[in-house]
Design a protein around this nucleic acid. Sequence first.
RNA 1: GUCUCCAUCGUCUAGGGGUCUAGGACACCGGGUUUUCAUCCCGGCAACAGGGGUUCGAAUCCCCUUGGAGAUGCCA
Length: 525
Amino acid sequence: MSVRVRFAPSPTGQVHIGNIRAAIFNWLFARHEGGSFLLRIEDTDQQRSTPEAIATLLEVMQWLGLDFDEEALYQSSQRQKHLQAAEKLRSLGHVYSDGPDAASQAMVFRIPWQAEELCEGIQEQGAMRMKIHPEQPVQISHKGLRFAAVSKKGAAVPDSACLAGFKNLQVYDSEGRQIFVLQEHIEEILRDGRQFSLENAVELRFTRRSISYVDQVKGEMSKPLDSMRDLVIVRGDGSPVFHPANVVDDISQAVTHIIRGDDHVENSFRHLLLFACLGAKPPVYAHLPMIVNAAGKPYSKRDGDAFVGEFRDKGFLPHTLFNYLSLLGWSPGDDREKMSREELVQAFSLQRCLHSSAQVDIVKMGALNALYIAEMEPGEFVAQCREFVQHLPWGKELDEDYFAKVCAFMQSRLKRFVDVEQWQYFFGEDYQRDEKFCGKQLSDDNTLAALKALQEKLAALPEFSAANIEASIHEASDEFNIRRGRLNQPIRAAVTGIGTGAGIYETLELLGKEKSIARLNLSAK
RNA sequence: GUCUCCAUCGUCUAGGGGUCUAGGACACCGGGUUUUCAUCCCGGCAACAGGGGUUCGAAUCCCCUUGGAGAUGCCA
């Protein structure tokens, strides 16, 4: 059977960086395997899932080149299926009702008592003895166990777990007497809803069962059933929750591999049970490590740089983001970093994904971006710069030829398109100056005198060309006993106000005689 | 608290018992590219979290400790 993976975001208006990373890995895997990459829009939250939010999502995917196969599935359209699945589970005896009052009863999926008969990957782990606190009676019913665990300090901490976690349960009291044997009552508990409340219980003895599966990136994963709880699948108001919706849609879309963030591992254990109880073959799971921000913390909305749109607005190229993100938590195994889409597809494998979380380094991403910017077609580069300059006060009306020349000078020096704002000195007198840099460069009297002399030489130039400008600068340097080249940064400070830019001779030529001289004058005073 | 997972330079990573005095990249610091900015090139700084095992031999396997993350919702 061919591979089918899906990207299943909730459209919330912004596309989270962690989500899109998962999308990229799914896409890479699908393309590598020659399978299908499906899109499922989990739009059941009607508050946030606006048409605008969905449009943003689709636009971001297109921007990144994440083309999907088949038609996008809108989860809200599947509601009846989700409910039908819940009813099916009820008819098979896997569901009970629970809730504060008769009017709002939720449907709760009971982790099946006969787990090993229904679901692959259930194993007995041997005998367990669990100390519990006698302060609270142990309550046993078809809804599971309620008891008080004992904290390190000896205090009672209320806990609960699913019934299926306690195969062969025997409860002992403080005198060491066996006061309850689950095997003797399991029928009446499950069938008749009988409940037990046991006082003075201090120990639970049972056979631990665990559920396990082989994760394609993390390897063998396992969780004891006694650490799991039954889960609500339909709310008291009749709406299905995430779990059945997700599983049912994965069955509908015949998804073979689920590649998602680490934060879903616990859900996967539960979902495995749901797949099994619905009679479906479970998919293969792969959990990706999370990506974290520069502070090493998980990305949250308020950190900034949490959304794809922010990277685009800063002037990162789509392929930079694609390439960089694909290298977070994965590597091709050799020294390649700058990789084309084709190379990434070719090299990708889940087995080479890492197990630990990765921190985004915006500086390194900038370096990668610079590489991609440097190899852009000049025309395309100019157009892109034009777009970013458009929003700036000085960027509305520009001489196109002049702008193109500036672009040509600056292409190899640009890391992000937002940085075009630093080109302001080419277009007017109202530019930002790096005072610290300028102060340092323009403090020496001899240097200032040389700049003054340079003005006259430049003014006398018949042709204001880079070559002539260079010659004049050399003359001025020689006259004032300044090593050739040492005058360049002071000139740059006077004329551009910042320490980095294009070649200074070319910059002056482009700026023109009048402006160049005027700026030297201003600073030389 | 409990459960699950994770741990190599500041960061992203290579590394599947010997070829590791641990390689690459970004950042940083020097130097070079007929004396500037950038590119490019060369060089430098810098890591196996700690402790026990297993083994002739451990960054690699096991255990413990510590640290981190996630989960413990009628959120998704």
